[in-house]
Amino acid sequence: MATKAARIGEEVWKSRVDKINAEVVTLTYGTIVAQLCRDLTVPNTINKTDYNAVNKELDRMGYNMGLRLIEDFLAKTGTGQCSNFRETAEMISKVGFKVFINITPNVSNWSKDSDSFHLVFEENPLADFVELPDDGRAQDELWYSNILCGVIRGAMEMVQMQIEARFVSDVLRGDDTTEMRVTLIRIIEDEMPPDDE
């Protein structure tokens, strides 16, 4: 299962993806986060960033990206439905991340009932060249790469899975690893519109 996903990821990345220098993406993302840090400030202050608001906004931006990105993903990879959440995890890591940002985070730390796992990022192109502001708060409050959580949440919602994704550690905060926890909340059943007869 894992090797199959890896093979699909490699193949699609090699043959079906238009590419751009990764640093352009790193710098463009940096400019977005920096702008949010300037714009979203604690009420009644001029330049005290509300990092929680920045996290939320990044997640929202990612969610909107994810809603549209899934179609691109399905079209490029031609993959079908996953039979279980473990397979989904492999697809996210080895196909999704590979095809879009050319990394394959490790899947680990499965919960007992297989409804949540960790993505461990050895590499993170969004965070190259990055150091958080030395203001005594950013390292405790900002999740710099939070847009990724939103992307996964948005993309999964479009394939009938409601999930929760959040970072639990980040080397930018001085942690030894960068890890995201992804938890399956529920499978969204095809619901009839309320007034449909």
Binding site: V17, N21, L69
Partner: peptide, 19 residues
């Protein structure tokens, strides 16, 4: 290290669109 690293143009497009 990242001088020649590549990434999907689509990812850039999504980000640029967000910006």
């Amino acid at each position: 290290r990242t001088k020649t690293t590549e990434i999907s143009l689509a990812s850039f497009a999504y980000l640029f669109n967000t910006l």
